[in-house]
Write a protein that binds this DNA or RNA. Structure first.
Length: 536
DNA sequence: GCTGCCGGGGG
DNA sequence: CCCCCGGCAGC
């Protein structure tokens, strides 16, 4: 039950998929680097922006470097098609598990009528010889597994796994639970490992979609339309800044409908809602983060947060376009007392690492927590400077996104999957449930509420358990002048007092069933863990 | 003292 | 991953 095992929500960008080359019909591995959706804006205005329409095109960069577009149905991968629907062609590169390890081979033949795929496995070592294996189609993968299965699991919501195992054991809930109280419940709705997967799933189920759209429309109409002044002026920029504005407040008020409503919307449509700010749910940055992340992939350490991207989450970026031209970003060291600013992320990282972290055994990318982007007027631009564009510190969410940008900076050898990064960060900086030290003692909700999130998972998960919420807390703390914990090691110290979960006041298995009927307890109660059956 | 549950450890 | 339990802390 460690926060470090949780992952942040994900965007479709970065998802590994396999797509067919028209020339050969063979599938090749690649990564989604964006999407194109001609209907997007219209859909958005209708407040039913699920990010998916039948016309969605996904831009996939093959591992070979080729970039191609595919429609949803063409792709195979998490959230997309399944190999089981394919007829594999000879010479198709495929991965299967053989003797407990993943091996790579090429398809010799595929006989769908008997569900048999003969795969020739190439030798993996000098002492091995090629051999053939026969597999069923659904045992064949077109994508290499990422790391171990364990690590793969960690890409998913850890608590979900616990829930699933619990559910498996109890077999008492056929449907997905909705948290009764999103503030303290440890129990989360199972979250898909892939946003699109959940979106598509709900789309396929059909009946949820309209409800989600309707809910989103209600939420949207409560605040403002895309045409409203708030929308045009305040929201986007406030979403990028820590400054307060009426629009933001309004958004937070109107969208801060915690779990009761939001959870029911949880699946696809919440991305709509979250696209305009999830407000006081407190989780703030996620999809904004994703947006920047996707941009970062394309722009490689560009200091511009929302460079244009055809990706599905680039809405803010599109609207941000006019502002972008009038401001620029510099990188400011946030180490207490240090006022160094740099033009390039590379430079500021070098500064932090060499000056502040030089004598410390810090984790990789640790330096990323010690600088932030600052938006400053771009004097080279002739455009007038609107009032709300005074020099502003960007929200922590953006700092994070910048960190993600840096992940792809050439000087980082380690090319992290964008989805892995939040976990990485969290792992390094959050000690346990509730975060380390006094992270949750003073949470500046006001600024967090302004950052929109485009991730529907925010709406599902209690804000307090949102990884990015915690990251925000970390960074809020770091930015706070009252933050006296200068040494990251101190922050990370396990000695630091974790914030204990408030004691639930509802009945627990122990009370309900008593010690003599311990076999009726939920697994968690048996294990002296937080009760999942009567969780608050 | 009872109870909930976190963190850690064994298998 | 399953299971157990020491120990902390709220009540």
């Amino acid at each position: 039950m460690s926060a470090s095992k949780r992952l942040a929500k994900r965007s479709i960008v970065g998802t590994r998929v396999s797509g067919p080359l028209k020339e050969t019909g063979l599938y090749h591995p690649g990564v989604i680097i964006g999407s194109k959706n001609p209907d997007e804006f219209i859909v958005l205005q209708n407040s039913c922006h699920t990010g998916i329409t039948p016309n969605s095109k996904y831009v996939v960069r093959f591992d070979t470097g080729d970039v191609r577009e595919f429609s949803e149905g063409e792709l195979v991968g998490p959230g997309f098609g399944n190999v089981s629907s394919l007829k594999l062609k000879p010479k198709q590169k495929a991965f299967v598990t053989h003797n407990g390890r993943e091996v790579c081979g090429t398809v010799v033949y595929h006989r769908p009528q008997i569900d048999e795929v003969l795969i020739n496995i190439q030798p993996q070592g000098p002492n091995e010889i090629p051999f053939d294996v026969t597999k069923k189609l659904d045992e064949v993968r077109l994508l290499e597994s990422r790391k171990s299965a364990r690590l793969q699991e960690q890409d998913f919501d850890f608590a979900r796994l616990a829930d699933m195992s619990d559910r498996k054991r109890n077999q008492q809930t056929a449907s997905i639970d909705v948290p009764r109280n999103n503030n303290v419940s440890r129990k989360r709705r199972p979250s898909s490992g892939n946003l699109f997967q959940s979106l598509i799933t709900s789309s396929n189920q059909g009946d949820d979609v309209m409800d989600e759209c309707a809910a989103a429309m209600v939420l949207m109409s409560l605040s403002c339309s895309p045409h409203s002044p708030h929308w045009d002026n305040g929201m986007i920029s406030s979403s990028w800044s820590s400054s307060s504005s009426g629009a933001s407040s309004m958004l937070s008020a109107n969208f801060g409908t915690p779990s009761t409503g939001a959870a029911s919307v949880a699946g696809g449509a919440s991305s709509i809602v979250s696209g305009v700010g999830s407000g006081s749910t407190g989780s703030s940055s996620s999809e904004l983060l994703s947006s920047s992340t996707s941009s970062s992939h394309l722009n490689n350490c560009s200091p511009t947060p929302s460079s244009s991207d055809d990706g599905i989450e680039s809405d803010a970026g599109d609207w941000d376009e006019p502002r972008k031209k009038r401001t620029r970003l510099i990188f400011k060291c946030t180490w207490p007392g240090c006022t160094v600013t740099k033009e390039a992320c590379f430079d500021i990282e070098a500064h932090v690492r060499s000056v502040h972290l030089a004598d410390q055994d810090v984790a990789e990318h640790e330096e990323e927590f010690y600088y932030t982007e600052v938006e400053v007027p771009d004097l080279s631009s002739p455009a007038p400077q609107p009032q709300h564009m005074q020099t502003q510190s960007l929200p922590t969410s953006f700092t994070l996104s910048a960190n993600l940008i840096h992940q792809n900076h050439p000087h980082h050898q380690q090319q992290l999957h964008p989805q892995q990064q939040p976990q990485n960060l969290q792992h390094q900086h959050l000690g346990g449930v509730g975060g380390s030290v006094s992270l949750s003692s003073s949470v500046n909700l006001s600024s967090m509420a302004f950052s929109p999130t485009l991730s529907h998972l925010d709406m599902v998960r209690p804000a307090s358990e949102d990884p990015e919420y915690k990251l925000n807390q970390v960074q809020q703390q770091r930015k706070s002048p009252n933050n006296t914990q200068l040494n990251p090691k101190k922050r990370l110290s396990p000695k630091s007092s974790p914030v204990r979960r408030p004691r639930g006041d509802t009945k627990k298995c122990r009370k309900v069933y008593g010690m003599d009927r311990r076999d009726l307890w939920c697994t968690q109660c048996k294990w002296k863990k937080a009760c999942t059956r009567f969780g608050d």
